[in-house]
Amino acid sequence: MTAQFTVQHTLGERIALSVEGDSRVEVLSYVYRPDPEPYESRKPYAHPVRTLGGRLVSGYRPNDHRWHKGLQMTASHLSEQNFWGGNSYIHGRGYQRIPERVGWMRHDGFPTLDAAGDRVTVAEDLTWINNGGQEWARERRTLTAHSADPVAGSWALDWSIHLTNVRGEPLRFGSPTTAGREMAGYTGLQWRGPRDFTGARVLTPAGVGTDQDTMGAPAAEAPWLALSSAHDDVDAHSTLVFAHAPENLGPGAVHPSHWFVRAEPVPVVAFSWAFFEEFELPPGESFDYRYRVLVADGAWDVPEVERALAGHRW
């Protein structure tokens, strides 16, 4: 039997989800208030994210990349604007501080907040705005928390995006790699882990590997990957599983996805939708992606990951 979620909404600030077990654990805080620093690309994010055992599995404003904030939707290269945050990669010049390239995402409202006990669904409307104040895209974002299982020690978060171009001309989605930097294809939904996850084990359907083995791997060949690591301070491990919905990998997807993954020097995973090649979204057109993140206590192996994923229908 799955555990129940409780929801606390602090208006104008955040939505917090907790799970009742031996003790009450806040497993997710979704923060939608505007960030104070425009250079970090102000946008909503999920942090802290915790396991059912209370282990922290997200990082916030680390000293190496202040714009990394838990789990957040990003676009590192979008028609010469930066919705990732921080420095922008310019071919031949490297990473440059260009504040006028950094856009942001405005929270417009929550049309749905359905707290149904063992399943919570939050739908959010957002607008993507370039640095000059022009509205470029409308987004309907949906987060669904479900399958909190104290026996398995895990819970699931589904994150979907429906994005529509309202700019009036094509939006070009790319990455540092499409701009000329090899194997730096980060963009899309991005997770930053806590420092405990530095050097984490990387698992895929092919087995245990390294971040370099998996960097740039096509999602069609590896529809999921996981990072597992020991924590500081406590004798415990946690595992994060990142998975694509089946439609992300089929012919209906706007563009093929690849994995961006690092365990060293910092723990980062991104569901990159434009790793090696740009794609365009014409005016008035939309695209959709759905993702799943399993948050688990313990050092899972490949069979455990695959059993857990098979137990959760899309």
Score class of each variant (00 low, 15 high):
G250V: 00
D301A: 12
E278G: 00
G250I: 00
S272R: 08
G298P: 10
V254N: 01
V266A: 12
F260P: 02
V295R: 13
V254M: 10
V295H: 11
H258K: 10
H258Q: 14
S286Y: 06
V268C: 09
E306F: 02
F279V: 01
P303R: 09
R290Q: 13
V293T: 15
L281W: 06
F276Q: 11
P303I: 08
P267K: 10
E285K: 14
V295L: 14
E280P: 00
A253S: 15
F276D: 14
H258D: 09
Y289S: 11
G284N: 11
V269R: 13
F271D: 04
G250L: 08
V295Y: 14
Y291C: 02
E306Y: 03
E264P: 00
G284R: 09
Y289F: 12
A296D: 05
F287D: 01
S286H: 12
F275R: 04
Y291V: 00
F271K: 07
W273I: 01
V261T: 10
F271P: 02
G298M: 09
V269H: 13
E280W: 03
E277M: 01
P282T: 04
P265H: 09
V254A: 14
R262W: 02
V268I: 15
G298S: 09
E277N: 13
Y291L: 11
Y289V: 03
P265T: 06
S286K: 06
Y289I: 00
Y289D: 05
G250A: 15
F275C: 01
F279L: 04
V261H: 11
E306M: 09
R307Y: 01
S272E: 08
W259E: 08
G250Y: 02
P267G: 05
H258L: 05
E264S: 07
P256E: 13
L281I: 05
S257H: 14
F279H: 11
A263G: 04
E306G: 07
P251A: 15
V302P: 05
A299T: 00
V261R: 12
V254I: 15
F287P: 01
E306S: 08
F276T: 08
S286T: 11
L281R: 06
A296Y: 08
P303S: 10
E280F: 02
A253V: 04
V261G: 10
P267L: 07
A270I: 02
F260Y: 15
A299F: 02
A296W: 09
E278N: 14
G284I: 09
E278W: 01
E285H: 14
L281P: 03
W273V: 01
G298N: 11
P251Q: 13
L294G: 07
P256R: 13
A263S: 15
W273T: 01
D297W: 08
E304P: 00
V254T: 06
D297C: 07
P282G: 12
A274K: 05
P251M: 06
E277C: 00
W259T: 04
E264F: 07
W300C: 04
R262M: 03
V261Y: 10
A274P: 04
V268P: 01
E280G: 06
R307C: 00
W300L: 15
F279R: 07
H258Y: 09
P283I: 05
G250H: 06
F287R: 03
P256K: 12
G252H: 06
E264N: 13
F279M: 07
S286I: 01
F287V: 05
Y289W: 11
S257F: 13
V269F: 08
F260I: 01
S286F: 07
H255G: 02
A253D: 08
V254F: 04
V254Q: 11
S286D: 10
F276W: 14
